[in-house]
């Protein structure tokens, strides 16, 4: 399916712009909104490109830079913080040899921090794409990452 077919059904819909951005980002192999995607949305919705850019850079689920196949989102809100989220982030960065916001050289993982994911019942927690992993310790991370190797 082409990108423009992908967003076709949202065009008539009031407020469909966010849905179109979701659809485009999900179909992008680099997990981001490319300039072409944004231009497509701008044209399809008759909205200035600057506004589409403004919307895309407002929401944290959208990225305007290419990312890895798996996006690791580490919650650093208070409930995770008090049970050691920082250690998880440090361990992940060390394990993957990247800093927050970066992508591994093989294009596999992107490491991001995020506000509360609403899974505090199993804090500290991370999300890898749509999958949540909870009750983590720096030691248990290796086995989690292994699932993606």
């Amino acid at each position: 399916m082409t990108q423009s077919m992908l967003i076709q059904r949202f065009i008539g819909e009031p407020g469909g712009l966010l849905k179109a951005l979701h659809a485009l980002q999900n179909s992008n192999t680099n997990n981001f909104l490319s300039p072409q995607d944004l231009e497509l949305v701008s044209g399809a919705f008759g909205v200035p490109l600057a506004k589409v850019w403004g919307v895309a850079t407002f929401y944290s689920l959208y990225s305007t830079i290419p990312r890895g196949r798996y996006i690791i989102r580490v919650c650093e809100s208070a409930p995770c913080h008090v049970v050691g989220a920082h250690n998880i982030l440090t361990a992940l960065a060390k394990n993957l040899n990247i800093c927050t916001g970066e992508t591994t050289a093989d294009g596999k993982f992107t490491l991001e921090v995020t506000s509360c994911l609403g899974i505090c019942g199993v804090a500290p927690a991370i999300m890898i794409n749509d999958t949540v992993h909870g009750n983590l310790t720096p030691e248990s991370l290796a086995s989690v990452l292994a699932l993606y190797n």
Binding site: S77, P79, S115, C116, G118, C120
Partner: peptide
């Protein structure tokens, strides 16, 4: 749009 850290009741 439950975003308050530590809240997951709505979910």
């Amino acid at each position: 749009d439950e975003g308050e850290p530590g809240t997951f009741k709505d979910r």
